[in-house]
Design a protein around this nucleic acid. Structure first.
Lengths: 211, 211, 211, 211
DNA sequence: TATGAATGAGCGTTCATTCAT
DNA sequence: GATGAATGAACGCTCATTCAT
């Protein structure tokens, strides 16, 4: 955690804010949320404690912004997928790929978001709207799928909730276990389950497994 | 919150511990996690602050045990379901029913566990092993279903993860939104999605929409 | 609180100081003393925080001057009364009238000076010398009265102290209670008490009660 | 400021509170109100900062109690005077004597109450009711005097206000100037002015001064 | 074993003041 | 002179934990 002061003193004002956010992220990663204090953030940023308050009204605002910054790109990417002109199945798969790859690519960045329970909680809190957004997006995809005849006429909302819960949980588990499973494998497995369910169907019975 | 002292003074040590746990639960419900202090717990239990430390090494241990107590019955019930002699589909449905009903019946008790972010996080922490247990149980059910030919030969572990994530998330959402949806409806919807997936099947095509 | 900057930028330095003092007064009235910060004053004056320090060595000096400004006119008016060529009784009454009217006319201005304990204290501090001045002036009036035979040969200094204390206290009380008593009534009552005291006199005895 | 810890550790709980109050008084005297911090009080009392909060909810409560303790005895003594069975003139004189002597005898204790503007302000604030009490008592005395024919039928309330203001101010002035004037002299002078006023009376003219 | 006063590290926050630009 | 970001000492307050009784 090198001193930011020299780097920042002559920077444009905005850069200092970035520096503090980065410092907060560093502290979060290094010490976890419950040991995140303004003093440590300031120290990590190489600035005085009081200076933090020139850029963030209070601790809550700082931590929230750390999280918002981290998740922003994924949200935008999600928006682009939903609004694209592909079929529902493709969109669904793209969405899963986005989630998995985003969390994998930024594992270094998101690790703490899920590993540290305190942070995870805060994220979920702040993400309540984000969660709602995610659900909404999956719902759109399911609606489209149903409309276009690719999906059964299920309750799109419930399906969306289920998928979001399942995906989040799977990602969490992978991060927790440190398992480095190929993303595509996870995606295909989830797609298979989401599309086909676990139940055996009469038609399939004969086709796939015969006797 | 009547004084527990008289009741407990001559009781076996275990009863005192029960009283403290109950007091902690009361405080948690009344004031939320972030206002839970040892002092308040002691006061609610009608004992002295220091006495709490005769039964719990520290605050963390106390709070963890509060949660463990809350979830214990459900865990045992889950064990009985898995070890029963029913079909996988019935076990799966029973399991979902257990989860939903448990959280519904104890809504007053669990509300705070999910509403208060700090508590939720703590619960998830303690539940990491509980989650693992839950996954294991669902995995057993899926294994049974596959073995007995009721389920497709999916990856039982992945399916279990998915279901646990989905169910937890749905319950959380319901608690958060305060929605009082009929349990059976939720269960049936989830069962339908888990068993049948969202994707259209060839066999259905003809049945449902004709050509 | 419009920006003073444009108005003041090209003004003589003195005008800027006036602007800051006025801004400080505005903040004082609007937010009370304990919420008076240099930053708010600067903002109200439409200038930068640092600029305040080009005109006032520190906060203390600024606040003191705000008070001095407020009381200046009354002091000058007091001087004119004492140096006038009237009798002691008339001067005494004029003095009381000045005090009462000054505080009444500027009630909006002085209210906070007395209502807010922190400010009141600060004013009293700064007024210690002002009090001395006031006492001195009343002492002159009493000396004159004694010399010219209008007053008994009392200790002029003690009488002056007494009167100043009494008048200040009465004004304070009125401001505190928010009472809107007619000034003339207060003045006449005080004059009566100062001149005649409360004690019964031989001459009165016969007049008022007969024997 | 000797360590109170040894002395107090074995004392009854109440003694510790006394010790803190005394320590606060010491700090107040030594450093003035605006430098009174909880930390300094704790240090002066030889205890830990947090311990102060075992006896006082917050700083405000502590300081208020310091003041209340200081003035309590005088208030009670005042009550005994008013309720006594003497004439109004005697009661008035006794009251003045009480005030002067109380502040003189406890000069060491009250010095700060008047010398330090911050404290004075706080006292006046807390004393608003005390002031009201003092006024009420003088009013009773004046009422009695008027009823019994010793005083002119003046406005008892106004006279009381005037006297309280005058006496407080005179005492303040003496404390401020450090002047050690004989109390009796001050009392007699005030009594003379209060009873007789400053104005010359026709009847007196001949009697007292002749021509 | 129960007590609860004492502890003391720690926290979030404020704000008068400085100084490089 | 004007600026305002940076400073950093200071403050009131909390509370898990200890320990002498």
């Amino acid at each position: 955690m090198s001193s930011l002061t020299e780097r920042c003193r002559k920077m444009v004002g905005n850069a200092m804010k970035e520096g503090i956010l980065q410092a907060a992220l560093d502290v979060l990663r290094a010490e976890g949320f419950e040991h995140l204090t303004i003093e440590k953030v300031a120290e990590a940023a190489g600035i005085a404690k009081g200076s933090v308050y020139n850029h963030f009204r209070n601790k809550q605002e700082l931590v929230t912004q750390v999280f918002e910054r981290s998740i922003e790109p994924a949200i935008e990417a999600g928006g682009r997928i939903v609004e694209g002109s592909f079929g529902a199945v493709q969109k669904l798969e793209a969405m899963l790929r986005l989630w998995f790859s985003h969390f994998s690519q930024h594992r270094g960045l998101f690790d703490f978001l899920f590993r540290d329970p305190h942070v995870r909680e805060l994220c979920f809190t702040s993400q309540r709207s984000k969660s709602a957004l995610a659900i909404e997006r999956f719902r759109h995809i399911f609606d489209q799928g149903i409309r276009e005849g690719d999906f059964r006429p299920v309750n799109a909302m419930s399906a969306a909730e289920m998928v979001v819960g399942a995906v989040q949980f799977c990602i969490e588990r992978q991060l927790e276990s440190g398992e480095q499973r190929p993303i595509e494998s996870s995606i295909q497995e989830l797609m298979d389950l989401i599309l086909g369910g676990v139940g055996r169907r009469e038609g399939q019975e004969g086709q796939n497994y015969g006797v």
